[in-house]
Design a protein around this nucleic acid. Structure first.
Lengths: 144, 144
DNA sequence: TATTGTTATACTCTATAACTATA
DNA sequence: TATAGTTATAGAGTATAACAATA
């Protein structure tokens, strides 16, 4: 179609994505905005996000995913546990490790938060149904 | 093409975008990662980003763009000025306001930082030239 | 009186170091 | 000896309040 090189297209697409997400544009970044609305810090929100209902993860593993160290995990898990969103459980296989899991309330909370996070930006209104389908297909190939 | 509704496509596309940018995935978010590499806090990097070479912006206006208050702007501008990346200038029209602008060194620094920010993610390798062109075109319609 | 920026201060977020229990 | 988590502490990031200069 166009006269762009592959690299030029990639750069243009990436810049659009960065702008959509709120970096470098006038829109506030999505995750911090949603976190604030739900009374969490951005990292707390991402922790809830990465903890699917019914699953358990060790604190250390979650710390690695979130790029934060063990001592900070302690405090973050303390606060989320006080809020009743997650709970600690002993690991039957290794008594050194503490697993975390969503509570029932936490699972409901996660549904609401993910709905807000997944709300597409209003700019998508510029595309019709077929274009959105193409976009989803292309991005699906990219992000797995 | 597909059987998705418009809303489903929009949601799928948006989820892919969030994942690509590092939220909700295993990849660290791009802006904090680049900021750290260049020795800045994320907000300092975004400030440099939003300050095109040759332009001036009042401290208050920049604070609004960055969603941070005036007192914090003072400290942030202090540090960037110490680093030699930006400079303060009086506003000839209103002696209450202080304008900020990139120094020559700051402009060069900005070029390098933006190059890193704009580097497309390796996942784009999953698309061929035509697909990337389509993607850039679609996202271009979306993000203006 | 309202607004811009600064100073002083305090609060939140996050990491480092030392420690305990377990492996 | 090495690893998971906790505690105490320190540092960065950010906001609030009081203030000076200007509008």
């Amino acid at each position: 179609m166009g006269t762009r090189t592959k690299d030029e297209s990639a750069a243009a697409a990436w810049r659009s994505i960065m702008s959509l997400v709120g970096w470098g544009s006038s829109r506030p970044p999505r995750v911090p905005a949603v976190a604030q609305r739900f009374g969490l810090s951005p990292k707390q929100l991402v922790l809830i996000w990465r903890l699917p209902p019914g699953s358990t993860v060790s604190m250390r593993e979650m710390g690695d995913k979130l790029s934060c160290d063990a001592s900070f995990m302690t405090g973050m898990v303390d606060r989320l546990e006080e809020d009743g969103l997650i709970e600690r459980r002993p690991d039957p296989g290794d008594r050194r490790v503490t697993l975390i899991a969503l509570t029932d309330e936490g699972a409901k909370f996660r549904d609401r938060a993910l709905a807000a996070l997944h709300e597409p930006p209003e700019e998508f209104g510029a595309l019709d149904r077929d274009e959105l389908d193409q976009l989803a297909t292309l991005l699906g190939k990219v992000s797995g």
